[in-house]
Amino acid sequence: MSPSELFALIIGVALTVMIFSYILGDRLFFGIATHILIGVSAAFLALVVIQKVLLPYLISPLADHTNAGFLLTLVPLALSILLVLMLFRRGTQAGAIPLAFLGGALAALAIVGVTRGTLAPQILSMIGRFEPGQLMHGAEPQWGVILEALMILLGVISVLFVFHHRGQLKAGNVDRPVFLEGVGSIGQIFIGITFGALFVGLFSSALVALISSLSDIIRFISLWF
């Protein structure tokens, strides 16, 4: 193990132990570790943004007056100045304009992206399962495929119905026929199955991280024995 690796291991183990001290109710060392994380991350982020974004995207075009992009760069420059004004008490209102610009552009991207990237493909995929070519093998119906397609359709509709029901609950309108309650229950079953899988997935990922951290500590201890 090289000195730099050993140094990294020592730092890593120390910080890991500080984080795990939270288990015993400690707040000081846990707080120190998390504040170190915030400080280092913020500084690294700031450096990357300055060197990888602002310099090539904003400063460089402004430095060259003959560049065609010079005028185009004035707009983000003005918006950026307005944003910086937010740091001062009197300039907080000025930040509304660049934020509105960001909000508008991202909202438009979301509209297009969600429509083209999620809603349309997912709905089409669901409908595509009912194509005759998939449901029939020659003259024979593929009952398994048919059942699967029906189950997926019913499941998705019932899950969407749960969304709708939640909206109704918020609006205070909860009078529904019994069969709709049944549909909502089916939707809850499918949501529960998905949440269960997500729960296990999250635990699995966290477990891998925990085992890695413990392995590092054990490896470090084993170096001295």
């Binding site: 890991t16 939270y22 288990i23 570790a33 998390t34 966290a206 991280a209």
Partner: peptide, 11 residues
């Protein structure tokens, strides 16, 4: 190590 340990705490 800090982020990994924090995720480990989640477990």
């Amino acid at each position: 190590p800090i982020e990994t340990a924090l995720l480990g705490l989640v477990a």
